[in-house]
Amino acid sequence: MKTVIDAHNISKTYNKENIPVYAVNNVHLHINQGEFTALVGPSGSGKTTLLNLIGGLDKPDEGKIEINGIDISAMSPNKLIDFRLLNIGFVFQSFNLIPVLTAKENVEFIMQLQGIPKAAREERINNLFKQIDLVDKMDSRPAQLSGGQQQRVAVARALASKPQFVLADEPTANLDTASASNLLDIMALLNKEENITFIFSTHDARVIERARRVITLVDGRIVSDTAKVAVHEE
């Protein structure tokens, strides 16, 4: 199976001058194409930092990260922005969407940044909204959508750029049970049907339950890495 993410002994330390905090400590990690992975652990265990490092939002102090064989640790900040645009989809916990744009425009936004022609954008938007089951909400502003619907639009936006993988930082943290379940159903379906790689940072049991691989972090170290039987195969 193709390796999408290859992190070699990466470390990230904050507050080096005073009392150092080892947010990520000598982590070695491979993520393959099509994985549905949850990074779990208590607060402050380094989940978000690891996600930021994998996503090229932050740089490791030690080690290197390769995405599809490309070392992103050595990239300039500007190149990293381009790299993220073309290769990585992001879903954040909240405040995910641009409030002045409609759901459709939010999804289209990422493709406009990529310079995709209008016709191709329209076609992809229609497909994505069908997949997230929000065709009737395309012209709604984020404020007119529920939290769950907003996160579904965020997933569509993350997928709009046809990324190598999607990083989701606590995507269900602010959602009620039904909305969280619905969001996870959609992501699991996309994972199954389109072989899209999803990596979540979470401590939501609902997400952990649905993940096929669970990586547990404690104090910046991986303490367990468990592959489960694929939920969607059950």
């Binding site: 996503g55 500007n78 922005i81 381009d82 992001f90 954040f92 641009i98 940044l113 990529q114 750029s161």
Partner: peptide, 16 residues
Amino acid sequence: RFELGMLVAIGMKKTK
């Protein structure tokens, strides 16, 4: 602040 950070994170160049 959050929104601007998010836009840079998802790939909007700072020049844009």
